[in-house]
Each structure stands twice: as C-alpha cells, then as structure tokens.
C-alpha cells in the first residue's frame, strides 16, 4: 500500500528526514517511535502533503501512485488520513457541514454518488457512537473551543467517516487522560481490518498497550535506526531513548 524509499526532506536549509525506508501493507499497524526532534511529525506531515517541507530525495508510492506528486486533497481522496497532533480550530465552519463536504468530495473522486442527507446522517450516527462524540459538539464550529480530548476524538470520528485505507495518527495520545485514550484507541481498533493500515506516531509506549502494533520502528536523526515487534516498544519504555542513541553512536564509531 505504502512504499517509502530513501526519503529525505527538510524545511528551508534544515534537513530533518535523512533516508527513511518503510513499507506498509494492508492489515498492518506500524508504530513510529522516537525522541523529540527525531522527525516523527515531519514524516507524518510529508506524507499528508504539508508544503512547508521540501522533499529533496527519495520516493513514496501509495497504491502504486507517486504520492509526492499528489495534492493533499488527492492523497486524502485516494485513502490517506492524517489525525493531527494539533487539530486546527476553524470558527464559522460547522463540523457537520465540513464532514459532509469532505465525504462527498471523496466519493466524487472515486466515481460514487454523493450521500443524500438521510444516508449521511445515518452514517454519522453510527460513527459518533464509536468515539462517544455528541451531536451538540458536531453542530459547533470545527474544533472551536473543544477540549484537547474532544479534538482528538473528533479526529478519530473524521477518520471513521472518511474511511481511509491508511490512517496516520500523529501523537494522537498526547494530552489525553486515560479515559480519553481508551475511547480513542477503541475507535481505532473498531476501524482496524485486513483492508486498511495504520501508522501510529508516538513518543510514549502507553498508546501501544491499547493499539497493539505489528511493527515498531525507532526514528532517530531522521532515520529508522531499529525495527522490531511490539516488544521493542516495551524495551524502549524500560531503557529510555538513550539506549538507542548509544547504539547508534556505537555503530557510527564502528
């Protein structure tokens, strides 16, 4: 589904990603872990198409298409979703209206008829249950005045509505208390199936107790320096990121 090859990217003169290689297949959950500044969020942003980052080398294929050539909206329509670390507040745009527009633009792109009001509402009701989100929240302006937890639940709700093939969760656990974390994780797990995949970007291991990954990758200095299974996350939790840093430095000395 997603093939990242030797991806280099940065912002202005600063290089942040220094040769990422990663392949994600349908049905898989990959976790990207790493210390602050390792490039985790940059990777998520580059994949979603944020234009403040410049890709200097490498390629990304998404369902055999050149992802880097696609606009952010076409990436979304082709099945990519980014749950933002800091969802944007947009006064004056109602959440419901926004979701409807987004869902129908995606359907149009895939050659499907737009959902009528009844079908849309039915779908919304279903997905709302998934993340325990209330109707009153959705009639308000998008994310405006939402608490941190409400914003993150709204992200997962949007994911459920848009039914992406690959969902990138950018530090979705940051700022969540345990109840909110559980709700968000349950939402993700309910949506998980053999056709879709997840890239879970996180600093801490605790989210991975709830969203259990198939693979864990450690990002350091813009490169994946170690990959493994969920046990790697536990090891990181136990030993801290310093053990990775030491290993990398040792390797470089050799």
């Amino acid at each position: 589904m997603l093939k990242i090859k030797n991806l280099h990217a940065g912002i202005e003169e600063k290089k942040i990603l220094n040769g990422i290689n990663l392949e994600i297949k349908a049905g898989e959950v990959h976790a990207i872990m790493g210390p602050n500044g390792s490039g985790k969020s940059t990777l998520a942003s580059v994949l979603a198409g944020r234009n403040s980052f410049e890709v200097t080398e490498g390629s990304v294929e998404f369902f055999d298409k050149d992802l880097l050539e696609m606009s952010p909206e076409d990436r979304a329509r082709a099945g990519m979703f980014l749950a933002f670390q800091y969802p944007v507040e947009i006064p004056g745009v109602s959440t419901t209206n926004f979701i409807k527009t987004a869902v129908n633009e995606g359907r149009k792109y895939r050659g499907q008829e737009p959902l009528d009001a009844v079908a849309f509402l039915k779908m919304m009701k279903e997905k709302m249950k998934l993340v325990h989100i209330d109707q009153s929240l959705l009639s308000r302006s998008l994310n405006e005045g939402f608490s941190g937890g409400e914003k993150k639940r709204n992200e997962i709700f949007q994911m459920a509505m848009l039914e992406p093939r690959l969902a990138i969760l950018d530090e979705t656990d940051s700022g969540l208390d345990i109840d909110a974390l559980r709700i968000v994780a349950n939402g993700v797990n309910a949506y998980r199936n053999s056709d879709n995949a997840f890239l879970v970007v996180t600093h801490y291991q605790r989210l991975l107790d709830y969203i259990v990954p198939d693979f864990v990758h450690v990002l350091y200095n813009g490169r994946i320096v170690k990959s493994g299974t969920k046990e790697l996350a536990l090891e990181l939790e136990e030993k801290g990121y310093d053990f990775i840093k030491n290993e990398v430095e040792l390797a470089e000395q050799v």
């Binding site: 198409g49 909206e73 979304a76 933002f84 944007v88 947009i90 527009t101 949007q158």
Partner: peptide, 30 residues
C-alpha cells in the same frame, strides 16, 4: 488565509478552491 486551516481542510479531501471558499465564507458570515 490561514495556511494551517487550509491544509487541515485539504487533508480531509476538500479541494483547495472549496477549502478557500469555506474559510472565506466563515470569516464573513461572522
């Protein structure tokens, strides 16, 4: 226009043109 808001809307599959319209209309409708 707020670039971050524009990007957010586009990552949901809303075209750049429609995202701009949504944001400008929201700005005015206030």
């Amino acid at each position: 226009l707020d670039e971050e808001a524009l990007f957010y809307l586009r990552t949901r599959g809303i075209s750049e043109k429609n995202a701009k319209s949504l944001l400008l209309h929201a700005f005015a409708v206030d």
